[in-house]
């Protein structure tokens, strides 16, 4: 009894030790970003590094919050990410449902097509996209960025929704059909409410993909007042003359913070959604 208890304790101890090691490895860079942002650039270029921000220097944060371009970058990124999320949710509900409920020739082709669409280098794709959107008069709108981010997130989201719907019994729809409900209504009144965790998962996934986008935002938009965060950060902090570590990390903290907060609340939906979706193709 006693040995069993000790073994259990040891095992638990090992779990915590491993968790602690992993945690410190993965969170140290995050912590370092935070500490760096609280010091001035001249302080940073002095050894030894300050492990704790002794002299708080909020200058970099003041600069960012008082700079109107930065607020514009945030606003644009937020609009793009939300727009892409909404678009991706709808499209993948439709497509996932169709792929789950109807077996037809080429349905495997569609799956394969979706997946392989991701396999072409974005770098080359962007050239073709540029002249195409120029012709459609869509350049320099946030709408193209929404479209681009949604399409990046789509393959995974469609697969996830399909698996999710697969796990929902067809009897529910058959019952609704007997009641005379239209197919669209059935989808939205019966199926969608049951798929909330899956929808949450693809929402978070899409939002993060859109938030992370760099190449599309760099190429398809060039107006300063339509810039999104990643290219905006590159413009401001990877400039010609100097490294501004303090400013860059302060911007990074402000760019990441809203996501972190959201994560603390939404993370469990992500796991739930993926669990229910079975995360397989």
């Amino acid at each position: 009894m006693n040995t069993a208890k000790r073994m259990l304790f040891q095992k638990e101890g090992l779990t915590y030790i491993l968790l602690f090691l992993l945690l410190s490895g993965f969170l140290f860079p995050v912590y370092w970003m935070f500490v760096t942002s609280l010091q001035s650039n001249s302080e940073l270029m002095k050894l030894p590094p300050k492990w704790l921000p002794v002299q708080l220097n909020l200058g970099s944060y003041m600069d960012i919050l008082s700079s109107s371009v930065f607020l514009t970058f945030y606003k644009n990124t937020f609009l793009v990410a939300s727009g892409a999320t909404v678009m991706c949710i709808f499209v993948s509900i439709f497509a996932g449902y169709a792929l789950s409920r109807f077996r037809f020739k080429g349905s495997n082709m569609i799956t394969l097509l979706l997946l392989s669409a991701q396999m072409f280098p974005t770098v080359t794709l962007v050239i073709g996209l540029f002249s195409q959107y120029q012709k459609m008069n869509l350049l320099n709108t946030l709408f193209v960025l929404i479209l681009a981010a949604a399409s990046t997130a789509l393959p995974f989201s469609v697969m996830l929704m399909r698996t999710f719907f697969n796990s929902i019994s067809r009897e529910l729809e058959e019952a609704a059909e007997i009641d005379g409900a239209s197919r669209f209504r059935t989808l939205f009144t019966v199926i969608v409410p049951l798929s909330k965790p899956g929808i949450m998962a693809i929402a978070i996934y899409t939002f993060l993909i859109a938030w992370d986008d760099f190449l599309f935002g760099l190429t398809l938009v060039s107006d300063l007042d339509k810039r999104t965060l990643s290219p905006g950060l590159s413009l401001t902090f990877l400039g010609e003359y100097s490294y501004n570590w303090s400013g860059a990390t302060a911007a990074a903290v402000t760019a990441t913070l809203p996501l972190l907060v959201a994560f603390l609340f939404l993370q469990r939906y992500m796991v739930e959604g993926l669990t229910a979706g079975g995360v397989k193709e």
Binding site: L22, L27, V30, D212, S230, A255, L260, F263
Partner: peptide, 12 residues
């Protein structure tokens, strides 16, 4: 907490 790195944009 473990998810944090994923929320940081690649360029950052």
């Amino acid at each position: 907490i473990f998810m944090i790195p994923w929320a940081i944009p690649t360029i950052v």
